[in-house]
Design a protein around this nucleic acid. Structure first.
Lengths: 205, 205
DNA sequence: GATACTAATGACACCGAGTGCCGAATGGAA
DNA sequence: TTCCATTCGGCACTCGGTGTCATTAGTATC
């Protein structure tokens, strides 16, 4: 799950009224990630981050709803991308194939961003507080998958089949991520593909 | 996931030395669940709970590591039960069958406890803070499944196959729980069975 | 019964996350 | 320059959680 980061900056001149923001989500996220790498997540306070970014503590909470949201960047934008990707797939592609393909695409990261992504995911899956918080993000991700599956199956999005499918895909993706983090030279896409293949084989008996 | 509750009380005379505890986990859990039902989780403070239970706030945190742990009761004991159940299964039972059976058994609740269990699960899956915290409990649950699968497959417990399997089983179980909570007359065991069946069918193509 | 030992209690002080409130700062537009 | 919109940031507060320590309530021993 590439969590955005770069380039939601305050460019694109749309500024008509009022004082202009003194920083950006991406900037804050970057400052924080650096501090986390140095001192660890738990030993970095929001005050530290705000100070390092040169803003007030109160202002920090206007850019991020919580300290836990810092590593996620603009996850909503990512989800929108995945939604669009799914909707663009042909309807004659089997459901499972479509979903698998979307999962793989969603988790494709440009080579130059791999180290950053690694660090972010190591944080997200390694720090208990962040792992817990991730659940809420994953829920939104699951909803995207479930809604697509529901449409394809012609059933409500909250019914068993799409929900179970979404959960399963999440599980597969996270297993692959865990493997990825274990070895520095591992390739995420390959791991995802092999995990998806495995699931099919194991269940087909 | 029946989360224990009843009967770890201070009975079973094993009391040799020192002042005796003034309450029990189960008692506190019960008091808290009642308050949650009345005012909601977020509007019930730890002070409220401690006061209602007639203990000090500091003492509360000696019975539960956090407010979030309240609905879980003694989950570790449950996990031990599941571990034992798995280890008791014959090795010639196919892996998937064994795991499925364990999941179903683990989530079997006596009829008289169903209403309590419903309330607890509604809380756990419905309150964001609790859902997030649940991740950490689920992780322990997944480890139990993964360790069994790893033993059966003769691979390390942190390798892809057992981990993906464990994630998948968790997903299936939680999907079933969500369905269960949607309809008052639903039967949890039936839902689990049908969800597991569905997964097999969908992936076998 | 007095004493020693053990374990649980609860008061106090403290930290960090998160929020409501409000005046001050900063920009564009009239 | 004035008006208005928007962001900023200080302050005070709530709540969850922790470390410390004296106190209390038990049991065992003499």
């Amino acid at each position: 799950m590439p969590t955005d980061d770069g380039s939601t900056a305050g460019e694109s001149g749309a500024h008509r009224l009022g004082r202009r923001p003194s920083t950006t989500q991406a900037e804050l996220s970057h400052v924080a990630l650096t501090l986390f790498a140095e001192r660890g997540f738990d030993d970095t306070t929001v005050d530290d981050i705000a100070a390092a970014a040169g803003i007030g503590r109160r202002t920090f909470f206007r850019y991020f709803a919580s300290k836990n949201d810092l590593p996620w960047g603009d996850f909503e934008a990512q989800l929108d991308g995945m939604r669009r990707h799914l909707d663009g797939l042909p309807d004659d592609l089997p459901l499972m194939d479509a979903v698998c393909r979307a999962v793989i695409e969603f988790n494709r990261v440009p080579a130059e961003e791999v180290p950053w992504h690694r660090q972010r995911m190591r944080l997200l899956l390694g720090v208990p507080a962040l792992l817990a918080h991730s659940t809420l993000k994953f829920q939104a991700w699951r909803d995207v998958v479930a809604e697509y599956a529901a449409r394809r199956l012609g059933v409500p999005a909250d019914s068993l089949e799409p929900q179970a499918l979404a959960w399963t895909m999440l599980g597969i993706a996270l297993s692959a991520y865990e493997q990825w983090l274990l070895r520095e030279d591992a390739d995420l896409t390959e791991l995802l593909e092999s995990a998806l293949r495995m699931l099919g084989e194991r269940f087909s008996t």
